[in-house]
């Protein structure tokens, strides 16, 4: 625990509403404690702005422990801030020092329009999910859970991919605005498991179609996504996505 506090300047994107012009504003924040989280620093700033009668900076957050995928800041050009494998809410002020100017921007991509300040609309992800990110089973009609054994390695692989928190940092980081890592994570999670097999071919075709329809770009395998991903979802899932897609389009195993 540290008691020495310091001051920083946050240069933050302000935008009143969707489609409106935005600009950067500089705000000094004093009394920063190194143990503060980045979002707590923004809380402090917002309370100060409120008391000055300035509208506080809107930013998305909820769980503040790196699991809900709501927080979505680009800090000094890096989605989710300077560290690997953590979300914005798990960035702490001890990564900064007195006098730093910290530039905070929203996740940017055409399918993620800015709603206000640092808040973006990521409902495109829900649409991709609705296009096929599920296993069609009816409540109550499930077979006994242990009737289909799943090899541990397979379950682990599925879990590695299933950890995606749907934050969209992969898109924010990708020079092509591609959501391939997110999509690959879904495809890998469901496609690895025996339960996901019947719809596997159909699922990948439909989800890719939706991905494109939402306006995400194509992957050129630059790898920025995996580096920015708070769950460090590996590039393998994109490989899997491509393979499943190739298979689905050439193998004629489409069920629908």
């Amino acid at each position: 625990m540290s008691t020495k506090t310091f001051s920083v300047t946050v240069r933050v994107w302000r935008q009143a509403g969707p489609g409106q012009p935005g600009a950067f504003a500089d705000y000094p924040v004093a009394g920063v404690n190194p143990d503060m989280s980045f979002l707590e620093m923004l809380d402090v700033l917002n309370d100060e702005l409120t008391m000055k009668g300035i509208e506080p900076v809107a930013f998305a957050h909820d769980c503040r422990e790196g699991i809900c995928g709501t927080c979505s800041l680009v800090i000094d050009g890096k989605p989710h801030g300077p560290h690997h494998g953590v979300a914005s809410c798990q960035t702490y002020m001890r990564s900064y020092k007195d006098g730093d100017v910290i530039v905070v921007e929203p996740f940017r991509a055409r399918p993620f329009p800015v709603v206000k300040d640092l808040v973006t609309d990521r409902s495109a992800f829900d649409k991709i999910q609705q296009a096929g990110g599920f296993i069609s089973i009816r409540t109550g009609s499930a077979p006994e859970a242990n009737s289909v054994p799943v090899p541990k390695e397979v379950a682990d692989l599925a879990m590695d991919a299933a950890q995606c928190i749907g934050c969209g940092a992969c898109v924010a980081a990708c020079p092509n605005g591609s959501a391939s890592l997110f999509l690959g994570a879904k495809i890998t999670h469901l496609g690895e498991l025996p339960q996901g097999q019947p719809e596997r071919a159909d699922r990948v075709v439909r989800m890719v179609e939706q991905h494109d329809a939402e306006g995400f770009g194509g992957c050129t395998n630059t790898g920025a996504c995996t580096v920015s991903c708070p769950k460090e979802i590996p590039l393998d899932v994109i490989s899997q996505l491509n393979r499943d897609y190739l298979h689905a389009t050439t193998g004629g195993r489409r069920s629908g």
Binding site: I137, G140, E144, V148, V150, A158, H189, Q195, G196
Partner: peptide, 14 residues
């Protein structure tokens, strides 16, 4: 548990 497994929840396995 049956329902969740059928949905593709990757529970820990032995």
């Amino acid at each position: 548990i049956d329902q969740c497994v059928a949905q593709g929840v990757p529970f820990a396995r032995e």
